[in-house]
Design a protein around this nucleic acid. Sequence first.
DNA 1: TGGGTCATGTAACCTGTTACATGATTAG
DNA 2: CTAATCATGTAACAGGTTACATGACCCA
Lengths: 183, 183
Amino acid sequence: MSLKHGLLGLLNYGSMTGYELDKAFKDSLNFFWQAQTSQIYRELNAMEKLGWLTSEVIFQTNKPNKKQYSITPVGRSELKNWLNKDIPDNEFQIRSVFLMKLFFSGERSFDESVIMLKNYKNNCMDAMASLYGTNSLIELYQPYVDKTHKAVYWKLTADFGKSYFKMCLDWADRTIKTLEESL
Amino acid sequence: MSLKHGLLGLLNYGSMTGYELDKAFKDSLNFFWQAQTSQIYRELNAMEKLGWLTSEVIFQTNKPNKKQYSITPVGRSELKNWLNKDIPDNEFQIRSVFLMKLFFSGERSFDESVIMLKNYKNNCMDAMASLYGTNSLIELYQPYVDKTHKAVYWKLTADFGKSYFKMCLDWADRTIKTLEESL
DNA sequence: TGGGTCATGTAACCTGTTACATGATTAG
DNA sequence: CTAATCATGTAACAGGTTACATGACCCA
């Protein structure tokens, strides 16, 4: 149940509509968690039923009406609880279609494997580039987060990403060499 | 649809029962893909309906009967097809409850964050240790894989894991230091 | 006599994905 | 005129998780 808690964490910074949450989510948590817009709306409904949120309809002229969600005390204590609960071991596991394909690459040609690895490198480079762009996002959102030092944690997650993709690129280079030498 | 293809890949090495597949899966693919036993049985049924597999009941005395699955030509071509199909971009994304908690760690104390990071390090060390154990598994399974060089790809995926967990440990050390200095 | 191995599942549930629907306003 | 932004969803499906069920054999 992490998507719910991610939304809870964002609403803890301030009340927002589903639409705004969707954008905030995609600007911040998206690098380590993904969610479809439709899923966000569904979860917000469920969370309201759980009593974690309340909603208020805001009428607008010239624009569609909107529904603003606010975190409740119950929601806030749920967030703290979740934060301090141990993460189960299986949450640390890797899930990678890419590695699964590599595992079975004995079933195809050397060239096809190398093409996949080169595509992989391109993906990593793109992901890394977008992480270097988060610095400006962090500054953009900083005023909305009450205590400034909280942004430190955002930066730490971004650092993880940078280290991760760098490691992937290095590994891919070594792997391509290993394959070339095994010919 | 990667679990189906993982099972297909294993059955491509030789016919097996659900029970044997479950064990082979957990000995090999488990580091980058996870599946419950019940899910494996369910998927085998679905794959048979798709015509990717055939099954044959083997009667046994003193032991429960078993059902052996064999890959069909359709299944084999599905496997090759899947291997050479491009991996969609979203398959490269990270999903990490751990990073989500770190992101929101401004909501809790410094000590609690550090405890989480130390737990994380322990998890990484365990995972790394179990990867160093795969070498013997690779040798164990090698006779079952027709062409010996296929084990190269298994080793490459294990190398990824080792690099990954090493990177995680280094990052966690740096992160703990950063947090200590920010006090 | 208790726990591990062998062997196969069902049912309910939760989460995530894909496709679709609507419709006004505003900036280039 | 056309694309983006604002704003909220529903429905169907796919995939993964959890809990439960059964029962014999074998070894310590």
